[in-house]
Computed example of a mutant assay.
Amino acid sequence: MADKRPLIGILACPAEGDPPFREPLTYTAMGEAASRLGADLAVFFPEAAAIEAGQLTAYRYRPGRGWSKSAVRPPDAVLERTFCSNAQEERAVRKARQALAAAGSLLLSGRLGGKLSVYRTLAAYPPFRPYLPASEPLRSLDGVFRRLKEQGFAFLKPDGGSQGVGCLRLEVVSAAEPPVSSLSVGTPGVLYRAEGRDAGNLSFTRSFADRPSLVRWLAAFTAGQRYLVQDYLRLTGRDGRPFDLRSLVQKDAAARWAVTGIAARRGPEGSMTANLHGGGDAQPAGRFLAEELGAERAEGLLREAARLSLAAARILEARCGRLAELGLDFAVDAGGRLWFLEANSRPGRAAFQGDAGGAERLAASRPVAYAIRLASARPLAFPLSV
């Protein structure tokens, strides 16, 4: 009977369209993978996770027929891929997780916490420290103006943000900067420039003729959010476009961490970040780095990024609880040095679409195979090399 097959659930956010959720192509690929591996897959929303009479409302995938709304039993294992934008959505997700756990579902996607928490966790391991740019919480503007005075730049990003939203680069564009202790003396002409992405992920540039006006604007821009201030890394390729490396690490069918793929992401010309949601593009990292730095250096950087990816996954899982996958972002500066930028426990797949090396297929099948392994009490009916 079909109901005896493992049922893998994806806790997602609703969206306009048919089917009515984000990332339908990703979930369709995962549904196909589940079918090949002898399981079923269903997507459901936080509000639908209120389990009544042993059932919940979901969108179930059937090969050849696609998605259909139906009542399903509580999933054996659940991969969370929610992207909350407000406190109300966060509460709904917490309530859904509690209901699913109470019904016996295994929750596979732990929460990493904010970016500063991730940095501190990784920094506790001495071999990782050289790869972390200097970072601190934005409790005052001392760290900002110290960096502006000493380096000419400062970089700010939300502690809980994603997709480059709210990121900000500050730059001194006049040598006539007043002393750090002075917050009231201005200098005619443009003194500072701010470049970033607003709440709608649209690029902007602003100039400030004195420090007080910058202080007032920063207070308004960062209001209501926890921010980090970091050393600014110059991360552009030979064409002047920003780029970074997205490493996708996932548990495989044998419950081992594996690097599924590493892609190079480039932001559009004039952009500050390389995030694809800001209009960038992606390609295999090996090809891109070979063109930028030569084949030998590219191969070394990819080995280094893969090693750090696996180390970070193990470190973060030990702290945060069971994880199924992570998106880890790295950068390469003008001197060819590798830096760790951030981690995401609900990574997208866009950077690996069309990957001829098979990363796109693995990205869909590995978390499903891992979920089946944990959920099924029977011996696995598929090869562990998935």
Rank of each mutant, 00 (worst) to 15 (best):
P212A: 05
G286N: 07
L116T: 01
V72W: 06
L132C: 03
L248P: 00
R97K: 14
L235M: 09
S309G: 00
L108D: 00
A53H: 14
S213H: 08
A258G: 11
Q151P: 12
R5K: 15
A351K: 03
L233G: 01
A42I: 07
R226S: 05
M30D: 03
F44E: 04
S162E: 10
A298D: 02
A377P: 06
A363R: 06
G186V: 08
L106K: 09
R307F: 10
R60P: 02
A29N: 10
S181M: 13
K157H: 06
L380F: 10
G267V: 11
A359F: 10
V165Q: 10
S345G: 10
T236A: 08
A381K: 14
H277Y: 12
R256L: 12
P130Q: 05
N86D: 13
S109I: 07
A264E: 09
S174D: 14
R211I: 04
V259I: 08
L116G: 00
T28Q: 09
N201A: 10
E296P: 02
Q98W: 15
G54D: 14
L79C: 03
A381R: 15
N86P: 07
A77I: 05
V118T: 04
L214T: 03
D210V: 09
Q250C: 06
R62P: 01
L112S: 00
L341H: 09
D333Y: 12
L302V: 02
P127N: 06
V249L: 06
T82P: 05
F243N: 00
A102Q: 15
V43D: 02
Y192I: 08
N344T: 07
T121C: 04
L170A: 10
T57E: 15
G160N: 12
G200D: 11
F155C: 00
F153K: 11
E292M: 03
L41N: 03
G31R: 02
R146H: 12
D329K: 04
R94P: 05
